[in-house]
Design a protein around this nucleic acid. Structure first.
Length: 688
DNA sequence: CACCCAAACTTTTTT
DNA sequence: AGTTTGGGTG
């Protein structure tokens, strides 16, 4: 990696742009291709601005993920420290408090200005599955479940809703473009969404989309926008290519002239359109401001050798749109990227395990190697193989810790105690009690409702007999948490104490599950209080599910498995990309939509550009996918990826595994009868 | 009304 | 394979 103190010409230009003039800084777009030292440049720019006298609390820094924020913060501090050390000045660590994801910044601004916009400042933030549960209840209430044709599933409903909100597009348009099979339900969905929005208001809840939506509308109110604008001198936005209409609208509302605004991104890495992100934001940025915003492109790559960049450049060159900035590296030589053809995903797993171990023997830690894939389940076979061979690994993306029923149960207790109006959690908690189902839960909740949401009202409430004991314990727990009668640590430990017998009752594998509860308890203590914990946990859920997840293993060496999406911003020496075949790269659901295919191209580009030294594109002749019509799995024969054109293949070394010779040997072994096992088996019963 | 069981149905990526 | 719905039982 580039020395933290040294910058190239372009990076310097970006860092110093507008900083040394007395005038307000003009809007700037930095196109930072993969591995071009983006974080470093942004850290330098931030440091520069602070060293020039800007006060850290007047800097607003929006990043895509929490991880990026941490990295940026520590690097900025390091640079400031080094600079001041040179000048022999003292230095206290700088804290940029206004730093975080759009969602977390939005949440904070909304809490601060809640009074001015008719919002309760102590709203609960609900995650995707909570939203889905709420939607589910409402669609039952509206009678959409017993229709002749099947109504869309709750997950689909929330996806449609989310698309509408985040792209600010009408239901009909969204249905036509993304959910044609649901278009007959337009009217019902509209009704559903109205009720959903009202329900959230009653329960004092905001979902992910609301955070942006409310903030967007707040940004359109002149008095508030003016106040917030006056609060910041510098606004830095990272990963601008992955922002959506609402996010761009928030920036535009608060900072209409673009003064002090610097956005950084790479259109060739825009891969979040499913979250309604649009490349158009970054493509149109220069013309959005008048006079035109300045654009600086960083093209020198410090991560990969030229051989890898050639593949990336060729891939993008064949694409339909974008700034098309070709990257170059000063490292001209390196291992030629490989296109590995294998029979199926069992072979794929075998090849990867072999190569990974080979590299490790050569001194390359597992941590410096990664396997990337399009969909989370693609690594199933490989995970089996790794487990079988005792190779430690960590998986990013895919199934999450927070999605486990028991973890959600525990959180629901804390959420309900925190916000008595939170009906979703209330129902979840109540239904844990024996002989309490939806109807009884409704009654119980209604009792709370008519008593001004005071948990004490439950003291006189009589639940069904089998539930009495647990109910009393629950009520005491809710009261002591809600009134903060016990400290945060005890709130968690008492909750898990309460939950343990329920867990044992409902799940055979409660030992394993209780381990997760203990892990959650330990995570919870990293937060000052309940409010912080609940907010942060939903906005920034733990990312890893390792075989043996947990802080104890953090020093160990492990192989990284990750979805391409979760691999953003990261790099490894060896990278394997699974299932590079048509139907997957590009994904079959994208085929037919030109812009979607372009995004798939960028996705492959992100995967490729993670590699520093060695890149293996795996091309299985067939691979397994979960079958939709019948149960069980089936394999599909993926054709050659349409991205692997002749031009691209000429840049790759073609490998077949297993090699011809050994495959011949294996074939013989498989077909020739060396021994007759049946006879041996029957032999057991033969008496002497 | 809760709970259990069987049948029907299934689109990936995440703040 | 996992979720969701509907039916039957206690």
């Amino acid at each position: 990696m580039l020395n933290t103190m040294q910058l190239n010409t372009k990076q310097n230009e970006a860092v110093n742009f507008g900083v040394n003039s007395d005038e307000l800084m003009q809007p700037l777009l930095i196109i930072a291709g993969a591995g071009t030292g983006k974080t470093n440049t942004l850290a330098h720019k931030t440091a520069q601005v602070i060293l020039n006298g800007a006060s850290p609390e007047r800097i607003l820094l929006m990043t895509f993920a929490r991880r990026a924020a941490g990295e940026l913060s520590s690097r900025t501090n390091l640079i400031i420290e080094q600079q001041l050390h040179k000048e022999q000045k003292k230095h206290q660590p700088i804290k940029i408090s206004w730093m975080g994801t759009f969602h977390s910044i939005a949440a904070r601004l909304l809490r601060e200005h809640a009074n001015s916009i008719g919002l309760e400042s102590d709203f609960t933030i609900i995650d995707r599955s909570d939203s889905a549960d709420l939607i589910d209840v409402i669609r039952h209430e509206l009678g959409f479940t017993s229709t002749e044709n099947r109504f869309p599933k709750k997950k689909t409903c929330i996806e449609i809703y989310s698309r509408c909100v985040n792209s600010q597009t009408s239901i009909d348009k969204i249905l036509a473009t993304h959910f044609p099979y649901c278009s007959e339900w337009s009217k019902e969905l509209t009704a559903l969404f109205v009720h959903y929005a009202q329900a959230k208001m009653e329960q004092v809840c905001l979902d992910y989309d609301d955070l942006l939506l409310y903030c967007y509308h707040m940004a359109q109110i002149p008095a508030i926008a003016k106040k917030i604008r006056a609060q910041f001198d510098y606004i830095f936005v990272d990963e601008y290519q992955d922002t959506n209409v609402l996010q761009a609208g928030i920036l535009n509302g608060f900072f209409p002239t673009g003064e002090g605004l610097t956005v950084v991104g790479d259109d060739a890495q825009s891969i979040y359109s499913f979250r309604s992100a649009t490349v158009d934001n970054i493509l149109n940025f220069p013309t959005q401001f008048s006079p035109k915003a300045n654009v600086i492109s960083l093209t020198q790559n410090y991560r990969s050798h030229q051989g890898i960049l050639d593949v990336s450049n060729a891939l993008l060159k064949e694409g339909a749109e974008g700034y098309k900035v070709a990257l170059f590296s000063e490292t001209k030589t390196g291992s030629t990227p490989k296109l590995v053809t294998i029979e199926d995903d069992a072979m794929q797993a075998e090849y990867i395990v072999k190569q990974v171990l080979l590299a490790r023997e050569g001194g390359m830690d597992l941590k410096k190697q990664a396997v990337l894939f399009r969909s989370s389940y693609h690594s199933d076979r490989l995970e089996l193989e790794l487990t079988r061979r005792n190779i430690p690994f960590v998986k990013h993306g895919g199934l999450k810790f927070l999605e486990a029923t028991h973890v959600k149960d525990l959180l629901a207790i804390l959420r309900w105690a925190d916000n008595p109006k939170h009906k979703i959690s209330a129902f979840r908690v109540l239904k844990l009690l024996p002989s309490v189902g939806p109807k009884i839960a409704e009654k119980v909740f209604h009792h709370l409702e008519i008593n001004q949401y005071d948990f004490k009202a439950f003291k006189e409430y009589l639940p069904p007999k089998p539930a009495v004991v647990l109910f009393e314990a629950l009520v005491d727990l809710l009261i002591s948490i809600n009134k903060n009668k016990i400290d945060w640590f005890e709130q968690v430990s008492e909750t898990s104490k309460f939950y343990q017998p329920i867990l044992a009752l409902n799940h055979d594998d409660h030992f394993v599950r209780f381990g997760d509860i203990e892990q959650l308890s330990s995570i919870s203590q990293q937060f000052k209080n309940r409010e912080k914990f609940l907010t942060e946990l939903t906005l920034d859920p733990p990312q890893c599910t390792g075989d043996l997840a947990g802080p104890a293993h953090i020093d160990d060496d492990f192989l990284v498995l990750s979805t391409v999406h979760s691999a953003k911003g990261q790099e490894w020496n060896n990278v394997f990309v699974l299932n590079v075949a048509d139907g997957n790269f590009p994904n079959e659901y994208a085929i037919g939509d030109k812009r979607a295919v372009e995004e798939e191209r960028r996705l492959l580009n992100v995967a490729i550009t993670r590699a520093k030294d060695e890149l293996h594109l795996m091309q299985p002749l067939k691979y397994w996918v979960p079958e939709q019509q019948h149960y069980g799995d089936k394999h599909v024969y993926g054709g050659k990826s349409r991205f692997l054109t002749e031009k691209l293949c000429s840049l790759l070394e073609s490998i077949h595994y297993p090699t011809y010779g050994s495959s011949q040997e294996q074939k013989e072994l498989a077909t020739k009868m060396i021994s007759d096992i049946k006879k041996t088996v029957l032999g057991i019963w033969e008496t002497a």
